[in-house]
Design a binder for these strands. Structure first.
Length: 259
DNA sequence: CACCATGTTCCTTG
DNA sequence: CCAAGGAACATGGT
């Protein structure tokens, strides 16, 4: 254990005590959280752990004799390998405290995420729609990049107060969120990812192949990080501004406030 | 040196 | 109790 902060409310001592002898059984996902299920011999009740990669985290197995990375946040000694949670900025989580997943909204790709439920949730907020999309209790898993991407594809302006979206806009956005995430998952699974960070600029997967193959970049991200570049739809330069301390990218021509 | 960055949470104010 | 805004967290790249 290198950084206690990522353990949240759990102490180092408590985590070591409770994990000793436990066996990893499965890993699933909820929003941006990873859910680890572990089992202790003689116990029927499984032990649950949640992980979050923050912006710079990575979790992986390494050989027992491998050197620890500079920013190792958590290291678990397994029977053969080492489990390493490396996190440069230590914004991530690896904890027995499950509060993080309690307030999450529906999974965007599940049947629970309906247009009706989405419309209802939006009707209660005056926040700009881009900011509202980052609220994980509205729908789980949309981050800053995909919030801009979904709004661009839905042709909805980022500044519209959530409760002012028209029904057609809500329907388009609902679809766009699902499409964008499905495509991102698809892309992530089909492109070879380099985890050494040596070739890519910043270890972001969307940069993984972009220097050599711009078509990947264009295919995946149509507005994010494209300030000043022509809109892929109408050629108007993409604009960037800050909302809730996060960058928003949008096309002033394609993305409407009213329709 | 200044500013920016994929995320979440805490604190304050209304 | 809720909504909203801003700061904080820590490090590295430009």
């Amino acid at each position: 254990m290198r950084r206690a902060k990522v353990l949240g409310a759990t102490s180092v001592r408590e985590l070591s005590r409770r994990l000793r002898g436990a066996k990893f059984v499965s890993v699933t996902r909820r929003g941006k959280y990873l859910l680890f299920t572990l089992r202790l011999s003689g116990r029927t009740k499984p032990l649950m752990l949640i992980g979050h990669l923050g912006m710079t985290g990575r979790m992986y197995l390494a050989r027992a004799d491998a050197a620890l990375p500079k920013h190792a946040a958590v290291v678990l000694q397994l029977s053969r390998d080492k489990f390493i949670f490396e996190d440069t900025r230590y914004f991530g989580r690896f904890t027995l405290n499950l509060e993080g997943i309690e307030r999450l909204g529906p999974e965007p790709l599940s049947a629970e995420f309906t247009v009706d439920a989405f419309a209802k949730a939006l009707s209660r907020s005056a926040q700009p729609i881009k900011v509202k999309l980052l609220d994980q209790s509205l729908v789980a898993g949309v981050g800053n990049i995909y919030a801009s991407e979904a709004l661009f594809r839905a042709r909805v302006a980022p500044t519209v107060p959530a409760r002012r979206l028209t029904l057609p806009q809500i329907k388009r956005l609902w679809r766009a969120i699902r499409d964008v995430l499905r495509q991102a998952i698809e892309g992530g699974s089909t492109v070879a990812l380099s985890y050494d960070g040596a070739k890519s600029k910043d270890r972001l997967f969307y940069f993984g192949q972009s220097a050599e193959a711009p078509e990947y970049y264009e295919e995946r991200l149509r507005v994010y990080d494209r300030a000043g570049k022509p809109c892929v739809r109408c050629r108007t330069p993409i604009e960037q501004f800050v909302q809730a301390a996060r960058s928003t990218y949008y096309c002033p021509t394609c993305q409407s406030k009213t329709r």
